[in-house]
Write a protein that binds this DNA or RNA. Sequence first.
DNA 1: TCCACTGTACTATTAGTCTTAATACACTTA
DNA 2: TAAGTGTATTAAGACTAATAGTACAGTGGA
Lengths: 123, 123
Amino acid sequence: MIVIDYKDKRPIYEQIIEKYENLIIRGVLEGGSKLPSVRSLAIDLSINPNTIQKAYTELERSGYIYSVKGKGNYVIDDEEIKKRKKEAVAEQSKNLVRLVKSLGITKEEFMENLNYVFEEVGL
Amino acid sequence: MIVIDYKDKRPIYEQIIEKYENLIIRGVLEGGSKLPSVRSLAIDLSINPNTIQKAYTELERSGYIYSVKGKGNYVIDDEEIKKRKKEAVAEQSKNLVRLVKSLGITKEEFMENLNYVFEEVGL
DNA sequence: TCCACTGTACTATTAGTCTTAATACACTTA
DNA sequence: TAAGTGTATTAAGACTAATAGTACAGTGGA
């Protein structure tokens, strides 16, 4: 499920965070499902458990998972995931619109172009 | 023009790169205009000239500026800036559409929402 | 030509982060 | 109880970011 890219200059724990954020927000991991344990994932990826723990701690802090001592780490529930999805779309939309406006592109121009993008990007 | 955020955990040179990319792509800096010299900007920001040089080197490598020995660093010309603008919008559009599709949001739903975003985001 | 400014290159040093390693402790469940 | 879980701590090595100092080469004006 998770693959580390050693050509990537970013730290390993950040890569893990990003991968899980994507899996969760895209619905690949359902709400409430269990993440691999700190130790087992460390063995899987041939890295140190501390690195996994750092990623999980951060994922909990930013509200993607929650942890239960002695049991494991779990994806937040579907209700919460929906919120995250909306937040993600809202944020990226706002950024893009800001850029478009600052470049002096009209809404109509942009919207038309976006239609093509929708065609181009396959499912 | 440039302000360093020391609360930001990213390296200083990356912040400088990002700031200039924005200034250039948003047209605040016109094509061909001269950037502050490595030394003068270093004094302005109270940081080391080497850090500025690292930022400028990277900005040249990624095609936002060009440098002339003994003269200074200059913003690429307007023709090139236009290309960059289009690239930036295209890339961010594609990313957003990918996200929207992966979340199962329909084009119509998204487009309607985007109308509101356009209203919200002032000029 | 001289001088001040410019970009560029290099080495050395300090500080901080990333990662690994090895323990240890508390909690859960079979 | 035993195995598996999360969590915390300390130490070490590798790497990067940033500073400091120096040097060299090109530009342009006095």
